[in-house]
Lab assay of single mutants.
Amino acid sequence: QAPETKIVDKSRVACDGGEGALGHPRVWLQIPEDTGWVECPYCDCKYVLKGSKADAL
Score class of each variant (00 low, 15 high):
E4T: 15
L49E: 15
G17K: 02
A54S: 06
H24R: 02
G17A: 05
L49Q: 13
L57R: 11
K10D: 11
A21C: 00
V13P: 03
P32M: 05
T35N: 02
P25L: 08
R12P: 15
P41A: 04
A56K: 13
L49G: 14
A56D: 13
T35Q: 09
T5H: 11
K6Q: 09
P25D: 10
C40I: 10
G20R: 02
C15I: 00
C40P: 09
T5M: 11
C43E: 00
D55V: 00
Y42D: 04
V27C: 11
P32V: 04
G18E: 06
W28G: 06
E33K: 08
I31G: 03
D9V: 09
A2P: 13
Q30P: 05
D34M: 04
V27W: 05
C45T: 15
D16S: 10
G51V: 04
C45S: 15
D34W: 07
E19N: 10
R12S: 08
A54R: 00
L22A: 11
I7S: 03
T5A: 12
V13W: 05
A56S: 10
H24V: 03
A21L: 09
D44L: 15
H24C: 01
G23M: 09
K50C: 14
I31L: 03
E4F: 14
K53A: 12
I31N: 02
C40H: 11
V13Y: 01
Q1E: 08
K6L: 08
H24S: 03
Q30I: 13
K10L: 08
T5I: 14
A2K: 13
V27F: 05
W28K: 06
G20E: 06
G18W: 06
C15R: 00
V38H: 02
H24P: 03
E39I: 14
Q1R: 13
K6D: 03
V27A: 04
S11P: 13
L22T: 10
P41I: 06
E19L: 12
E4R: 15
S52N: 03
G17C: 08
S52F: 01
I7G: 01
I31M: 01
H24M: 02
P3F: 12
D9C: 12
E19A: 13
A14I: 08
G18S: 06
W28M: 06
D55I: 00
K50F: 01
S11G: 06
G23A: 15
V13F: 08
A2F: 13
V13R: 01
K53W: 11
R12M: 10
E4H: 15
K46R: 13
G23L: 08
V48Q: 09
K46D: 14
I31R: 02
E19M: 08
K46V: 15
V8A: 03
C45G: 15
V48P: 14
C43R: 00
A14G: 03
L22I: 05
Y47H: 12
P41Y: 04
H24T: 05
A21S: 09
T35M: 08
V38S: 01
T5W: 15
P3C: 15
W37M: 07
L22G: 09
V48E: 13
V38Q: 01
G51P: 03
P41T: 04
C40N: 09
W28T: 06
P32K: 03
C40M: 11
D9W: 00
G51I: 01
P25H: 06
P25V: 12
E33W: 08
C45I: 15
A54W: 00
D16G: 02
G51M: 02
D9H: 10
G17Q: 03
E39P: 01
Q1C: 15
E4V: 14
V8I: 07
K53F: 09
A2R: 13
A14K: 08
I7E: 05
V38P: 03
C40F: 13
Q30D: 14
K46S: 04
P41F: 07
G17D: 05
C45Q: 15
G36E: 04
L29W: 03
L29N: 01
Y47T: 09
D16K: 07
A21F: 06
D16M: 07
D55E: 09
L49P: 15
S11K: 09
K53S: 07
D16F: 10
D16Q: 09
E33I: 11
P25I: 11
D16W: 03
R12D: 09
P3S: 12
V8K: 03
R12I: 14
Q30E: 13
T5E: 04
E33P: 11
G23I: 09
P25W: 04
G51C: 14
C15W: 00
A21I: 10
Q1H: 15
K10V: 13
L22C: 01
T35V: 12
C15Y: 00
D44V: 07
S52K: 01
W28Y: 09
Q1Y: 13
R26T: 07
Y42T: 05
K50I: 10
A56F: 13
D34A: 07
Q1V: 13
P41K: 04
L49K: 14
K53D: 11
L22H: 09
V48L: 08
A2Q: 13
W28A: 06
Q30L: 12
V13C: 09
G17S: 04
V8N: 02
R12H: 07
V13T: 01
S52I: 04
K50Q: 11
E33Q: 10
D44N: 15
Q1P: 11
L29M: 01
P3I: 10
E33C: 11
K46G: 04
G36L: 01
L22F: 11
T5K: 07
K53I: 13
W37R: 01
K53G: 12
E19V: 09
S52P: 01
K10R: 10
L49S: 13
T35G: 03
K10T: 14
G51N: 03
T35P: 10
L57N: 12
V27I: 11
L49I: 11
D55A: 00
D44M: 15
E39W: 13
V48K: 01
Y47I: 11
S52L: 01
A54F: 00
T35C: 06
K53C: 14
K50V: 11
V38D: 01
C45A: 15
D55W: 00
K10Y: 12
D55Q: 00
D44Y: 15
W37V: 06
R12F: 13
G18H: 12
L57K: 10
V38R: 01
I7W: 03
K50M: 10
W28N: 06
C15V: 00
S11T: 12
L57F: 08
C45R: 15
V13Q: 03
R12T: 12
E4Q: 15
S11C: 10
T35H: 06
G20Y: 01
W28S: 06
A2L: 14
Q30W: 12
C40E: 08
L57V: 12
A14V: 07
S11L: 13
Q30A: 05
E19S: 11
W28L: 08
C45L: 15
V27S: 02
G18T: 03
V48D: 07
C40Q: 11
C45Y: 15
W37N: 02
L29T: 02
H24Q: 03
C43T: 01
A2Y: 13
A56Q: 12
Y47A: 08
S52M: 01
A21N: 10
E33N: 06
G36I: 03
R12G: 04
D34N: 07
P25M: 05
G20P: 03
A54H: 05
G20S: 05
V8C: 05
Q30H: 10
C15H: 00
G23H: 08
E19C: 15
W28C: 12
L49W: 00
W28V: 08
T35F: 05
Y47D: 14
G36S: 04
S11Y: 07
D44C: 14
Y42V: 12
G18N: 06
K50D: 13
G23F: 06
Y47E: 14
Y42F: 11
D9S: 11
C15P: 00
K50S: 11
G36Q: 03
Q1N: 12
C43V: 02
C15A: 00
P25N: 08
D16H: 06
P41G: 02
P25Q: 08
R26W: 06
L22S: 12
E39H: 09
K50W: 00
V8M: 02
Q30C: 13
V38G: 01
L22N: 09
L49T: 14
P3E: 08
E39D: 09
Q1L: 12
